[in-house]
Computed example of a mutant assay.
Amino acid sequence: MAAGAVIAAPGQAVAQEAPAPEAAVEPAPAPAPEAPAPAPGPEAPAPGPEAPAPAPAAPEPPAPEAPPAPVAPPVAPGADGEIDLNGRSYVIHVPADYTPERAWPVLVGYSAYRDSTENFRSYSRLRESTAGREAIIVYPRSVGGSWEGSPTAESRPGEDIAFTRAMIDDVAGKYSVDRARVYATGMSTGGGMAMVAACHLPDVFAAVAPVSGAYYTPVNMNCPGAPVSVLMVHGTGDTLMEYDGGNRHGADYLAVPDLFESYAQRNGCGPGRETRPEWDGAERVVAGGCARETEQIRVLGSNHLWWYENPDTTEEIWAFLARQHN
């Protein structure tokens, strides 16, 4: 604190001593006047609403995808070829006029015991017949030269049935197929397999037409009972698979009339049977009142054959099969 200053009690004035005479006291410089505060200028206008951001450009629509190119079938129209399936295979014939714009029937041909697929294809003449122009024909290869239902079979029970179903599905996946018009034929043990197909696959096959069939007892066992159109062609003088039944390879086989009557019952036929001679030495037997057609062609006195005349086996079976459908 400066000398001579007196601190006043609160609420008292402050007295100061007079300055000494010999000392002049310079007056304290007046404080410089404060610069006046600048007058407030006009307020800046309040910001208006922000201009909207430009909308993002709409993405260009994606170019339409080109439709997938049609997959060419593995065997061209008018050609034969072989297709592998599940460790087995089948030979296929595609009609020359095949087009995917319409659905085509399928005819399955089963070869005889110890017969090659190619040999059956040759002598059955299915390719060269009306069937070869109007249907896709498939020839499944057997296991060990035989088919299930026969005592000579090397396939397990149900194996040939499963392969047949898979084969039809495979053909339908590659070609335009009429699933209501799938048929089977076969010679001898292959004819027996056609009847196995009729027995166990009535949902697949609309009709079957076995020739000189080997009808061992299992070919007609445990069938679900749905009707299937049947034409059986057999010689009454067959010495290999006798018309009236017998035993071969240590196993019984059915008489043709007994198997025929079994299908007449399955197909809801009435009691009447009409026999019509239609060829020199052969006759047709027709069951009447059936839900599905049930017929025989009996070649009188003839042996274990695939006939080319009286009757023309190939044309007769196709004329029957082609009019059937599920």
Score class of each variant (00 low, 15 high):
14 V>S: 00
18 A>W: 06
21 P>H: 03
21 P>G: 06
22 E>Y: 00
27 P>G: 01
31 P>G: 03
35 A>T: 14
37 A>W: 05
45 P>H: 01
47 P>I: 13
49 P>C: 03
53 A>Y: 00
54 P>M: 01
57 A>Q: 06
58 A>E: 15
58 A>Q: 14
62 P>K: 05
62 P>A: 13
64 P>F: 02
66 A>K: 13
73 P>Q: 10
80 D>N: 08
87 G>M: 08
89 S>A: 09
89 S>E: 04
90 Y>F: 14
93 H>S: 15
98 Y>S: 14
104 W>N: 09
124 S>Q: 06
125 R>G: 10
130 T>I: 08
131 A>W: 04
133 R>E: 13
134 E>C: 04
137 I>N: 05
139 Y>W: 12
142 S>W: 03
145 G>H: 01
154 E>K: 03
159 E>W: 10
161 I>F: 01
168 I>P: 08
171 V>C: 09
179 R>H: 12
183 Y>Q: 05
185 T>L: 05
187 M>I: 14
194 A>F: 13
197 A>F: 14
200 H>V: 07
201 L>S: 09
206 A>I: 14
210 P>I: 14
215 Y>L: 15
216 Y>I: 00
222 N>I: 12
222 N>P: 15
225 G>I: 11
226 A>L: 10
227 P>E: 12
230 V>T: 10
232 M>G: 04
237 G>C: 08
243 Y>N: 03
245 G>E: 03
247 N>H: 04
247 N>E: 11
253 Y>G: 00
257 P>M: 05
264 A>D: 08
266 R>F: 05
280 D>S: 07
291 A>G: 11
302 S>F: 03
303 N>A: 15
308 Y>H: 12
310 N>M: 06
313 T>P: 11
314 T>Q: 14
315 E>R: 06
319 A>I: 13
320 F>L: 10
323 R>W: 00
